[in-house]
Design a protein around this nucleic acid. Structure first.
Lengths: 301, 301
DNA sequence: TGAAAACTATGAATTGGATTCAATTTACGC
DNA sequence: GCGTAAATTGAATCCAATTCATAGTTTTCA
């Protein structure tokens, strides 16, 4: 038995129209075509679906069962088609975001909160866990946007700048380095460096400072959550380097000192990477605008 | 956009098999066919459903949406097909019963109770409200069985005898007629006759007695429920004629008298009318057997 | 790195199922 | 009964889905 939607549509049409002839009109076919189709369907299911004793033919008991199924299933198909029409019109879609920088949560959440209200039909999600595999995942459409500060020239991917930030050094005010006004690579030699648990080439402190200077901290301790990092730093269990806007809350806290990295000041830029073909989607553009304006608010504190 | 189940099956198969080539195997088609089909479907919905960048091609964001729909809808189709397979095997079906005689409830309920346990997959229902239109309804497959004591020779309909019964006269023991041992047509002249609210040609008291004798009761009062009829009779608000097995409970009640109708004793036969093509269905046969044996129990009291 | 293997795309040819056409049968209303 | 509307039937037709043959990818593995 090989049912097709055509069959269900036919059943429903004949029932609605109250007869084969009317139904044929309704479906823009000859009534002969419908007759053949019904005959074929009845052969498939092995029983009569219609009663022919009376003239506008009506559904049999078995036919009614199939009608019930049709009336349940066909609206689902219609909904699916409607969904795709909306998808084409750009009102709906998916925005699954991968973040390479753990600190970005702080900035991302308020952005998404705004976004969700503006685009309730768009399916939003944050995917941690693919911190480094994220560009291939973007191409495979496992995610639709990657927050990254390490743009790589990749075919099919656009990097949209979001905002600039400064990686800042933070330590306990008890730490000897608190005496210095600018922190340089050398200063890390006898420090425990607390970082997010990601490869070094995704960590600003290494890419911008330690790796070029070929300097190794005394120890490196991977910690998942920003709040925990700050707690450990506050207890002088280590030092860290974080984006300036993450540190806005602790800047005024006497337990901590924040210092620029030197010798020259370091500036990094955060990007939202998207597939080129998604650039046209209206909600993608809106997300980028929201992201930029939210960053301004954050940096004002 | 004109979706067909074929498309949903394809989407699902490609996802399950993890690629076009495997899916083609799975569906017993060439991989070329699937490629064409997917291309056609994508043209229909106006967007890419698969990502081709990586080699075993995978679903795109839009493709995943369609997959979700497929995974919801296809099982419903399978269930429908399964239902029809069972229907063909005769394990399932429909038994909607029309009753011409109101009194039959008493007999029918216990029968249906037994039946339901034996054939849980059969959809059982009692349809009152088409007391006279019931044979056309049977032919139109609005019902599948009609309980009737008035067989008419109709093409396509079989009358299966169930059991014989005697229409019995019942009155209050206060009623003057209680003195008579046999009730004849004449006796109704100055009585209020309580009957079910159906045409006279469906009422035994008329078809068998009053109409042939051209006698009219003083008044006729239609009442829906058997219990109410008995109550009214008990209060001597009228007399009634009911099947003997309905009266088994009140026979031993001193408030009532029951009498045979005369001059000769009247015997009627109850039939279950079915469509000829349904005769082969196993559950129909079983219902008839149950009905007959239940009648025996009823008449024993 | 290069070659084989695996996978998908494409165009032309083919097939088969769905549709139409034309003619016939069947039911219903007057 | 007769005319009309409705459904069936079989042959012819058409179109869309499939196959065949081939080419163009990407991946894998030596």
């Amino acid at each position: 038995m090989y049912l097709e939607l055509r069959h269900l549509r036919t059943i429903r049409a004949i029932h609605q129209a109250g007869g084969l002839a009317r139904a044929a009109d309704l479906m823009n076919m000859t009534q002969s075509a419908l007759s053949h189709q019904v005959a074929g369907l009845e052969a498939q299911v092995g029983m009569e679906l219609f009663v022919r004793r009376s003239k506008p033919m009506t559904l049999s008991a078995a036919g009614i069962r199939m009608l019930r199924a049709a009336e349940r299933i066909l609206p689902e198909i219609t909904a699916l088609e409607e969904e795709f029409r909306a998808l084409q019109a750009g009102k709906t879609g998916r925005l699954h975001i991968a973040i390479q920088c753990h600190a970005c949560f702080d900035w991302l959440f308020p952005v998404l909160e705004l976004f969700r209200h503006a685009w309730p039909e768009v399916d939003v999600d944050i995917r941690a866990g693919l911190a480094f595999d994220s560009f291939p995942a973007l191409l495979r459409e496992e995610v639709d946007l990657v927050i990254s500060s390490n743009p790589e020239p990749l075919p099919g991917i656009t990097f949209n700048p979001l905002f600039d930030y400064h990686p800042m050094f933070i330590a306990s005010s008890q730490n000897p380095l608190a005496a210095k006004s600018v922190i340089e690579a050398e200063d890390f030699r006898d420090q425990t460096l607390i970082t997010y648990p990601v490869p070094r080439d995704k960590l600003d402190v290494f890419t911008e400072l330690l790796t070029p200077a070929k300097i190794e901290p005394r120890a490196q301790r991977p910690v998942e959550l920003t709040a925990v990092i700050l707690m450990l730093v506050g207890n002088n269990r280590g030092v860290a380097v974080l984006p300036d806007w993450v540190l806005r809350d602790v800047k005024s806290n006497a337990d901590y000192v924040t210092r620029p990295l030197g010798p020259g000041s370091i500036t990094k830029r955060l990007y939202a990477a998207t597939r080129e073909e998604d650039a046209a989607k209206p909600y993608i553009g809106h997300f980028l605008r929201l992201g930029r304006s939210e960053a301004v608010k954050l940096q004002r504190g």
